[in-house]
């Protein structure tokens, strides 16, 4: 030991550091599959493919609930009054400012399609209840208007609009 030169020392240190580094890389790489397995599996992802919904049976003033990716989706056929109410309010006065036009598809203004999950803590709001002709969440009292926008209560944001498009005038494709 006492006779070893500094060159030998640094060579040895390099070996130790290299070994430690390679071992550390291996450990991190080994953790990857252990964490990745928790993500949705292939069958779950495949089951989350887009769905088509026929709108014909939904009368004006009615709302239905369908499931897409295990989430409830409200499809509401709004009345003239509901649309007018939603458009009468000053957007800037809203907690989460967004115009009604931005939340529906142009030319299909009577159809409101929103994910029926309260943005507060994930309960399902009830349609056609509350003071705004929209949705009322019974868990903590959040109130959404006829455009699904938060108006009152603890929820921080509007009900989310899922990706969807009109396949025809009476069919939508969600997803």
């Amino acid at each position: 030991m006492t006779t070893s030169t500094s060159a030998e020392h640094s060579r040895r240190d390099f070996l130790y550091v290299a070994t430690g580094a390679v071992a550390a890389v291996g450990t991190v790489a080994a953790i990857w599959p252990l964490v990745s397995q928790m993500n949705p599996d292939a069958s779950t992802i495949a089951a989350g493919a887009p769905i088509e919904v026929d709108l014909a049976p939904i009368a004006e003033g009615q709302a239905i609930k369908v499931f897409w990716r295990s989430k409830p989706i409200y499809i509401m056929n709004r009345t003239k009054k509901q649309i007018e109410e939603a458009r009468a309010v000053a957007v800037s006065s809203l907690p989460d400012p967004q115009s009604d036009q931005a939340r529906v598809k142009e030319g299909h203004d009577q159809w409101l399609v929103v994910i029926g999950i309260c943005t507060h803590l994930g309960c399902i709001p009830i349609a056609h209840e509350g003071s705004y002709d929209g949705f009322f969440c019974p868990c903590h009292g959040s109130q959404y208007d006829s455009s699904g926008r938060i108006r009152q209560g603890p929820a921080p944001a509007n009900l989310a609009v899922p990706p969807y498009s009109f396949a025809s005038d009476t069919r939508i494709k969600i997803g």
Binding site: P33, D41, A42, S43, T44
Partner: peptide
């Protein structure tokens, strides 16, 4: 976390692990 201990589902759930779960 992925296995189902039921006589009707156990075999299937093992196959689902191997085929569908990430790195299953």
């Amino acid at each position: 976390m992925h296995y189902t201990p039921h006589a009707d589902l156990a075999f299937k759930s093992v196959e689902a692990i191997v085929r569908d779960v990430n790195y299953g």
